[in-house]
Design a binder for these strands. Structure first.
Length: 417
DNA sequence: TCTGGGGTCCTAGGACCC
DNA sequence: TCTGGGGTCCTAGGACCC
């Protein structure tokens, strides 16, 4: 058995931790660039505010109902997430951090009353972090996902749902549309519909071999999982990434080259940071930029540049990225977004293997190590390439951002006693 | 005034080469 | 009977997840 713990309306709940006056009130959190709604408190959902609704389309509705609006505050959410995960580690010796607001716990060998175990998790996380969560417990990840959904949706569950036998999970599956199954998106659901597969139960009863031929390979394992046979194992150490991307929409459309180059330098730096954290080197870099698809004369270009040698040096990666963007840039367009992808990676420890090939100078490695240490200790962005610029007028919009309560001294909450 | 996120992986299809 | 490869690289775009 394993458990999936998932924070309720994660970002909205994070905001409510330091604003208890907002508990019981409608709260929404917007995506990067204040683009659309990515988190809604229970009360906001009751107002009929949908998931992923463009902010500009519903702003009037939010104002009308006096909804509290927040821009995304990732330093805050990341820190709260870390507290949640740390607390959860006390409940199982083997865990997988699946996303910023979800964790799988292996329950193997823990003989417990699962409902009480789940309620214990909920009580503890509320007491220690003030984070409300749902707990789904089942023999496979896919079932634990469904259980988690039920824990939140079915009032009788009171936040915990245990699927410990076929009767229970089959009953639930009959009430869940197939596109809510983990790994089944809109497109696949449509295809499955052509075979008469509409609910999660239909999928569980389908013939895996036949469906595999007609759709994709993963569907076979999903079917097994729906029947209680685990196929996706718990990954304590997630597999190394095959690609690392950093892409952003700009706060305002960019027409000139210099700010584009600044932005791409920042994205290259972020991607290189992640690359070093994974202890890999990059050999090929993907660059792209495009205008808004909602505007006429849509312009979109991308290219791949090869590195002279496998590298994790921010300076080299940024310089290659800038060179490529110069080539892709055309005046007269209003660019909305650009990005850097490190697309061919090799483990750092693999080494060169070629006596005559040029490798990355050792000094570069030391320089990057110093850069990372300073930024880890004093905060991301303490040391950065001058080419990023200082003003950064292209930064994303964050008109409603809350303070970094837990990660900046000057933003610490003040308590009046 | 104008406004639609970000990350990862996969695949289709064309160009090019032997 | 009718037909004619296969690999690699590149770009574009889609699918799915949170």
């Amino acid at each position: 058995m394993l458990a999936l713990v998932d924070c309720n309306s994660c970002y909205a709940s994070c905001e409510q931790i330091f604003r208890p006056d907002l508990r019981g009130r409608p709260v929404v959190v917007l995506s990067n660039n204040d683009g659309f709604v990515v988190a809604r408190s229970k009360e906001a959902k009751l107002l009929g505010i949908g998931d992923l609704e463009p902010f500009f389309k519903i702003e009037h509705l939010l104002r009308h109902h006096d909804v509290a609006i927040f821009s995304s505050n990732y330093p805050l959410y990341g820190d709260i997430s870390h507290r949640v995960m740390t607390t959860l580690r006390d409940f199982s010796p083997e865990v997988e951090v699946y996303s910023i607001d979800e964790m799988f716990l292996n329950l193997q060998g823990l003989r417990e009353d699962w409902v009480e175990y789940g309620q214990g998790i909920r009580r503890t996380l509320w007491r220690d972090v003030r984070m409300p969560v749902g707990v789904g417990i089942a023999p496979s990840k896919t079932l634990a996902k469904l259980a988690n959904r039920a824990a939140k949706k079915i009032p009788k569950c009171d936040g915990v749902c245990v699927l410990d036998g076929p009767q229970r999970w089959q009953w639930l599956q009959r009430h869940i549309p197939v596109d809510k199954v983990w790994g089944v998106g809109r497109r696949l659901a449509q295809r499955l519909g052509e075979f008469g597969i509409v609910t999660a139960y239909d999928l569980g009863q389908a013939n895996p071999k036949i469906l595999r031929r007609r759709t994709n390979i993963n569907i076979e394992r999903t079917i097994e999982e729906l029947n209680g046979s685990p196929c996706f194992s718990l990954e304590e150490q997630p597999a190394p990434k095959k690609q690392i991307y950093c892409t952003r929409s700009f706060g305002e459309k960019l027409t000139e080259l210099p700010p584009l180059l600044q932005a791409i330098t920042l994205y290259a730096s972020r991607a290189a940071e992640k690359l070093r954290a994974q202890e890999y080197l990059v050999t090929a870099i993907h660059l792209f930029l495009h205008t808004s698809p909602h505007e006429p004369n849509y312009y979109s270009r991308s290219t791949v540049v090869r590195c002279p040698y496998p590298t994790d040096d921010t300076r080299l990666i940024a310089s290659l990225a800038k060179g490529a963007i110069r080539e892709l840039y055309r005046p007269g367009h209003r660019f909305m977004k650009a990005g850097v992808g490190l697309v061919e990676l090799v483990p750092k420890t693999l080494g060169q293997g070629d006596l005559f090939a040029i490798g990355q100078p050792a000094r570069a490695g030391m320089m990057m190590q110093t850069l990372d240490r300073v930024n880890q200790r004093f905060g991301s962005g303490t040391l950065f390439l001058g080419a990023e610029g200082v003003q950064k007028q292209w930064k994303m919009r964050q008109a409603y951002r809350s303070p970094a309560y837990t990660t900046r001294f000057e933003a610490l909450p003040v308590v009046n006693i």
